[in-house]
């Protein structure tokens, strides 16, 4: 489903170029549960953004569902992104002026789904994350764990094949974090491909496949016969 081949990405940070990704190749099957760990600046987030079509590789290729993405025009990449990929962010990124329901509807609204159909799907998804009673609340009336569950609902409302989560529990306490992870893992069990970027070993270790990145390269990948992921010393 995801086929990343020799992808390079260099950012200009101040004077010196920063090689965020060096010849990264990665293949992900449908329904996999991966975690990506590694120190800050190791390229984890860049990898995630690359997979989420938010970033374009400088070189190398990225096949999503067998489709070459790196040469697609921006319009089509946006469309693919909307249809196939759900993002979950550390800081939730909910829009404060919109109700919970409206936040969840946002991807469908951008895709041009009619209001009635949207409402129905959004309500269903909201029940799925256990927040049906909070449909008309605004984000500032919700707790952190609830916010992240709303964000998850928004991420899956278009029925994407891939969920990309960047530190989904980073801003949450232990209990809420646990809740959120359970929601995500349930979704994975139902067949969605889940990829979590995290600093948290306990979280990272839950994934069936663990990837460790250092200096823009994949150092270890538990799915290859190389050594299992070392404990992260950061």
């Amino acid at each position: 489903m995801i086929e990343l081949c020799d992808v390079n990405k260099t950012y200009q940070v101040g004077e010196s170029p920063l090689r965020a990704l060096r010849d990264v190749s990665l293949s992900v099957q449908k329904g996999e549960y991966l975690s990506v760990m590694g120190p800050s600046g190791s390229g984890k987030s860049t990898l995630l953004n690359m997979l989420g079509l938010l970033d374009r590789p400088d070189s190398g290729s990225y096949l999503l569902n067998g489709e070459k993405t790196e040469t697609l025009p921006e319009e089509q990449r946006a469309k693919l992104r909307g249809e196939h990929i759900g993002f979950i962010f550390q800081s939730f990124h909910l829009i404060n002026r919109l109700t919970t329901l409206e936040n969840i509807e946002l991807p469908m609204m951008l895709a041009g789904v009619a209001l009635k159909a949207r409402r129905k799907v959004a309500m269903a998804v909201l029940s799925q994350v256990g927040l049906a009673d909070w449909a008309q609340h605004r984000p500032n009336q919700l707790s952190g764990g609830q916010l992240q569950r709303v964000a998850i609902a928004r991420a899956i409302v278009m029925k994407p094949r891939i969920l990309l989560a960047d530190e989904p529990t980073g801003n949450l306490d232990q209990a809420s974090g646990q809740e959120v992870i359970e929601v995500l893992e349930n979704l994975n069990r139902e067949g969605i491909t889940l990829m979590i970027v995290t600093h948290d070993h306990n979280l990272g270790r839950r994934a069936k496949r663990q990837i460790r990145m250092v200096d823009g390269m994949i150092e270890t990948d538990s799915s290859t016969e190389h050594a299992p992921a070392r404990s992260d010393t950061l």
């Binding site: 921006e74 946002l106 991807p107």
Partner: peptide
């Protein structure tokens, strides 16, 4: 800015 970034992550194209 964040909202614009979010909209793009949620599938909004530049022209949208």
């Amino acid at each position: 800015k964040r909202e614009i970034g979010l909209l793009k992550a949620l599938g909004a194209s530049s022209s949208q």
